[in-house]
């Protein structure tokens, strides 16, 4: 498992050309699939600043490997609007506050969101319902 905070700032390198495209600025979660939809680049010299998750070969501790420059630039077709999950307020579907997201753990292979870490406890990734401008909404207990 990798954490969102661990990936920020990692260089993004293509496997075919060994060219650095930029560094990871952030990861965009698709709340419907509960997995990462794309990664945003900081300092991208040319081409798109957003890379679809399908173009990502591997996420390691030192770099993110993208298949090729072409794959990276083919770009995502339908990306959800980027919402910063880390730092966002957490609400259960019953309207109860549950702290803020400290970090997000994800599977670097599949891109699935595994855990949302909050000051009030960990929330399993499959409890994620929505990620909006106001809050992260998770399935919750009544009350």
């Amino acid at each position: 498992m990798m954490l969102f905070t661990q990936t920020r700032g990692l260089p993004v390198i293509t496997a075919e050309e060994a060219a650095t495209l930029g560094t990871v600025d952030g990861l965009t979660i698709d709340a419907r699939t509960r997995s990462i939809a794309c990664l945003r680049l900081a300092g991208a010299r040319k081409g798109r600043a957003v890379i679809d998750w399908s173009a990502v070969e591997a996420v390691g501790h030192d770099a993110v490997i993208v298949r090729s420059r072409v794959a990276a630039e083919s770009g995502p077709g339908d990306v959800p609007e980027h919402r910063e999950a880390v730092g966002s307020r957490v609400l259960t579907e019953y309207g109860v506050e549950h702290g803020t997201v400290k970090d997000v753990g994800f599977d670097p292979g599949s891109g699935r969101v595994l855990t949302l870490y909050t000051a009030l406890g960990d929330i399993a990734g499959d409890h994620l319902i929505g990620l909006g401008s106001y809050a992260v909404v998770v399935r919750g207990e009544r009350g």
């Binding site: 609400l91 319902i129 909006g132 106001y134 809050a135 909404v137």
Partner: peptide
């Protein structure tokens, strides 16, 4: 366990979609 609220406290409360947007 019942959670009770006063109706007057509801005034000003955010209306939030399950998608996480306050409307």
């Amino acid at each position: 366990m019942i959670t009770l609220m006063l109706a007057s406290d509801l005034t000003g409360r955010e209306v939030v979609t399950l998608g996480g947007d306050a409307v």
